[in-house]
Design a binder for these strands. Structure first.
Lengths: 209, 209
DNA sequence: ATCTAATTGTTGCAATTGCAACATTACTAT
DNA sequence: ATAGTAATGTTGCAATTGCAACAATTAGAT
């Protein structure tokens, strides 16, 4: 379910996307979307695929800021894409729909019966993003690699309602996400396994505590 | 300037606060606001004072999540206050205004001429919070205490347009915010001073690079 | 099927950090 | 002014981590 369209029936969804002149694009794997709407102010969502928002700082270090899976929403403002250090890249072939933000905030939209709901949804999505950022901060404020891993596992496990976790990122990316050295993380995962806290095979991790 | 009321004249501001039945409260220093609106969904802003949103995890460790100064906006959803681990505390006597969020999102508000602007402002504020969270993440992903400090100084310096920084937090709180040991941070600040990167007297820090 | 590139695993070692314990200074209230 | 409390500074030491260099495994392309 696309959170932009909660409580909006599919006929009105189409109408809304038509009114806002939404456009859908497909990007090949490992491409940057930024050039597409560099100076525009947009809201977009993932129709199909997997993308990441990454930041590259002045030293050339990159950090994963956000993962974008099917139905996830992103935007110039709500994803800090107005910051030149941020960009969106596709990790696999991806299809996205883009809406001009300026069309969304036009006052005359108030006449559309479903617009209020749409705008409310947008605010809910933005609030939800703040929650996710706070969760990331909860992870990053942990002092040890072990505690960061366990906090990450806890959050993912709670979100999916299961003690079995399938990693969406690969291990290099996870280390980046947790802001730790990949090798040190690998060592710590081995320790967690040896001490019986987790079981892991490839990207499947089972929490045993 | 209160960002909730950008492009809304003061007469309409009052009208709006009246319509939404906003209430203003004063809290003494070092008090928790949470009990006031535990199960409500609210939006609030700081009229006067200084507050912090802090998180206490299952181990009893507390983390500073957000600082709230005059005119800053907070809310159940946009500040993750629906999470039981989060609370707002006053660091000095503070006056805040609270609005019931359910009154804000009523559809009939669309009839109010200034409402569209208000809702847009709310979305802008929420987006801005995401940017701030991303900045915090940029700091926390740095590997060393030195890099965290310099990144923090850079962000504050850019925000204020000055190489001279006045810390809003005390040093214990700053260490908490950067998620490092206070003593180790103190040591690193001494190093930065000795190596001529910064000058510091009490809460005034001058960047020399 | 095979070659190549990408990802993951391993480990010694030096650097950084957290922790603890204590000294010093600044703030607050009476 | 002074006592009491909170904040800050200092430092030795052990634990954790990052780094580097390399091995092993897996994934992807032709």
């Amino acid at each position: 379910m696309n959170p932009l369209f909660i409580n909006i029936n599919s006929k009105n969804q189409e109408k809304l996307l038509y009114t806002f002149e939404a456009h859908t694009f497909t990007f090949p794997k490992n491409s940057s979307l930024l050039s597409m709407f560099q100076n525009d102010n947009i809201i977009g969502f993932v129709v199909e695929g997997y993308l990441q928002i990454i930041r590259t700082d002045y030293n050339g270090n990159t950090t994963i800021i956000e993962e974008l899976e099917k139905n996830n929403v992103f935007g110039t403002n709500i994803s800090s894409l107005n910051n030149a250090e941020y960009e969106i890249i596709t990790k696999e072939e991806s299809k996205i729909t883009i809406i001009d933000y300026n069309r969304i905030i036009e006052e005359e939209n108030n006449k559309l019966p479903y617009f209020h709901q749409f705008f409310k949804n947008l605010l809910d999505i933005t609030s939800e993003k703040i929650s996710e950022k706070n969760e990331r901060i909860e992870i990053l404020t942990k002092k040890t690699i072990r505690d960061k891993l366990l906090e990450y596992f806890r959050i993912v496990s709670e979100k999916n309602g299961s003690r079995i976790i399938y990693l969406t990122m690969n291990y290099s990316e996870l280390a980046n996400y947790l802001a730790v050295d990949r090798c040190a993380m690998s060592r710590e995962i081995k320790n967690l396994k040896e001490e019986g806290f987790i079981k892991s095979e490839h990207k499947k991790i089972t929490l045993l505590y």
